[in-house]
Simulated scan of single mutants.
Amino acid sequence: MSARTPFPLRPLTTALATLALAATGTLALHPSPAHAAACNGYVGLTFDDGPSSHTAALLNSLKQNGLRATMFNEGQYAAAYPAQVKAQVDAGMWVGNHSYTHPHLTQLGQAQIDSELSRTQTAIAAAGGGTPKLFRPPYGETNATVRTVEAKYGLTEIIWDVDSQDWNGAGTDAIVAAAGRLTNGQVILMHDWATNTLAAVPRIAQQLAARGLCAGRISPQTGRAVAP
């Protein structure tokens, strides 16, 4: 057998050293250009009125389609379905406060508004959803008194830029079209219980990807969708 090495040692040694450095974190491996350019912007997908018996199916669809969303939960349902609140978090979703009983807050006094928000903070935390930083007033109705109570609990008010109209019987095509109007940083209103919205999720995911948009979290500082 020849004593000559059948292949050059230097390239192999260099390759092994590179792998070793990467494994220890000493060398940063750059993501592929395709991966780096995948997100040209972020949008906030939001689902109100949960958790419910519909939540598991919605979470499965979101996960299967690589989407994350903010779930604005009602306190009464967080108390009734605590396992679903924990499932939301385990699925990578963010949990927000949507009042306890979904009243018209602008028609209530400050003490009643306080009760709606504080009980929901407690119910969500007790269910494993953490302490919400985001609040969506029912019907998008707000005033100075509502905002005063929000500030007391460190909550940022989140309305929406695009209304999917799923609460109003919008069909799947219309919901997908509504999501198609989202631009970087914007937030869309959808609902946990809407079957047409559940059907729209895969198409929304495809559409966002085609436009270079990714599902992001909603910043408590700005109220806009940002990178997770």
Rank of each mutant, 00 (worst) to 15 (best):
Q112S: 12
G25K: 00
V162Q: 12
L62Y: 03
S164P: 08
V162H: 07
L62Q: 09
S53N: 11
N184Q: 04
Q207S: 14
P11H: 15
A38R: 15
D161M: 10
G75M: 12
C214H: 03
S61Q: 13
S118C: 04
G50D: 07
C39I: 00
A125F: 02
A20P: 00
A127M: 03
A20N: 00
T148A: 15
H35N: 15
E116K: 05
A22V: 01
A87H: 08
A144C: 05
P31A: 07
D48G: 10
I158V: 12
G216V: 01
G66L: 08
P137K: 14
Q221M: 10
N196L: 03
T24V: 00
S164G: 12
P11S: 12
G140W: 05
L213A: 08
E141N: 12
T142Y: 14
A178N: 11
G154I: 00
A144H: 08
A57C: 13
R181C: 03
I188L: 14
Y153H: 11
Y42M: 03
A205H: 10
I204M: 01
V89W: 09
A227T: 02
A87Q: 08
P228I: 00
T195Y: 15
Q186G: 01
S61D: 14
T106A: 13
T106N: 14
L117Q: 00
G50I: 06
S118E: 09
R4I: 02
N65S: 04
E74M: 12
L108C: 04
R224A: 13
R4P: 03
A178L: 12
C214R: 09
R147E: 12
Q165L: 14
K133N: 12
